[in-house]
Design a protein around this nucleic acid. Structure first.
Lengths: 224, 224
DNA sequence: AACTGTGAAGCCATTCACAGCT
DNA sequence: AGCTGTGAATGGCTTCACAGTT
């Protein structure tokens, strides 16, 4: 069982495949710039430190995307991956919590290019509400239900202090939000139909710390 | 194989256990505040949505930490976990890239309480170098090798634009950095002895997007 | 010849189930 | 009785290996 994922929600496709999908898309988009027309599973594998068999298995879950003897058509594959990931249409995202992290996220340019539009921000501080940051209006958290429905916001980034995270999450769930990227160092309790992906920065540093300090297992063999 | 981890470095303990270790610590530290003296594997399991067997297996990798019929002594377990994770001593961390994300990280208060001290920041912009942000001196990236060695910095947070990430990473590796928390949307190529944990925000949003749009597999049964 | 798609095998992680300690 | 520690069983993901397509 994977920590960090809401395990009650599982897809037809292995979770681990899902995690790689965006990596495939990123690489394929890079390759598109090179003018190359097709790419083989082993090229993709090399670029992501995977095996060719795994690339084929992963892509195979979504139909017969490649042509034997040739490989995968880069443009088609990119389009298909965007479709699978749902980033062929723009998704509206809310940022909840306009502290320093929230502001950094509002300024982050990596979202728009990936099909995510930050449609609104929310906070409880009177001094922030009503203002704009980086072109995004800051609403009061109490207005989340209204704004989320009006602007069809299904995804939210939670960047409030730990002690306010659960209550903010509850408002989010009552607002029709279906997915939460959670930066608060707290395990959120949410209804069945809401997915949570935690991004706990301190936890990730702790894991790094463990990795660099502990003895190692023999590296796994990998085909070349 | 897990994406996002440098898979050539594997520990004696399953990677998946490592990922849960910090979650155990967080929960155990919360419990410490409640005055409770011991905790059972099933209590821990409930708090983290795991099974009791898994908690015992995980903790079992590090010796006989619990007492049959009683459970785990909370204070001892916390201390042991901190020891395992290496957060019983303070680790020095560098922030490389003082853009909006870097500044947000420099302001983030969650690190110090977990035993991580941000000892220095680095950037290439002349207007930033020499100044301080949130009490942390901003050095030129070229000084990283010197400062990292002098201040015993083994961990770094990489928060530069994608096109500068690889070259910055190389400087980091040449500076004795052993672990990199990578916020740049790029797969870093690093030597064997350096661990990388990627934190690609757009990728995580894409994964959320997939999770909320795709059909579901039946939830896995879980013992109560 | 090059490469995909996919059953089958292998491997790792989780869960079961129970012996043994308190 | 309550609970841990741990072999054995299970399940899921990865890798192998090859039949089949271009």
């Amino acid at each position: 069982m994977e920590p960090g994922w809401d395990n009650s929600r599982r897809t037809l496709v292995p979770i681990s495949t899902v995690k790689r999908l965006s990596l495939y898309l990123r690489l394929v988009e890079e390759l598109a710039h090179t003018g190359q027309m097709t790419v083989s599973s082993s090229q993709l594998a090399r670029g992501l430190s995977l095996t060719d068999a795994q690339v084929r298995k992963d892509l195979g879950y979504f139909g017969q995307l490649g042509r034997p003897g040739v490989g995968y058509a880069i443009a088609d594959l990119a389009e298909k991956l965007r479709e699978i990931l749902g980033t062929n249409r723009i998704s509206h995202v809310a940022v909840v919590g306009v502290g320093s992290l929230g502001r950094a996220l509002l300024r982050y340019r990596g979202f728009e290019t990936k099909g995510f539009h930050i449609a609104a921000a929310f906070d409880v501080s009177v001094s922030k509400v009503g203002r704009r940051f980086n072109g995004v209006v800051i609403h009061h958290l109490d207005d989340l239900p209204m704004v989320a429905r009006r602007d069809e916001i299904l995804l939210a980034i939670l960047a409030v202090p730990a002690d306010q995270a659960q209550s903010a999450a509850e408002i989010m769930c009552d607002s029709g939000i279906r997915g939460i990227l959670n930066f608060a160092p707290v395990r959120l309790v949410v209804p069945e139909h809401v997915a949570v992906v935690p991004v706990d920065l301190a936890v990730q540093l702790e894991q790094l710390n463990f990795l660099i300090k502990s003895p190692l297992r023999a590296p796994r063999r990998r085909r070349t």
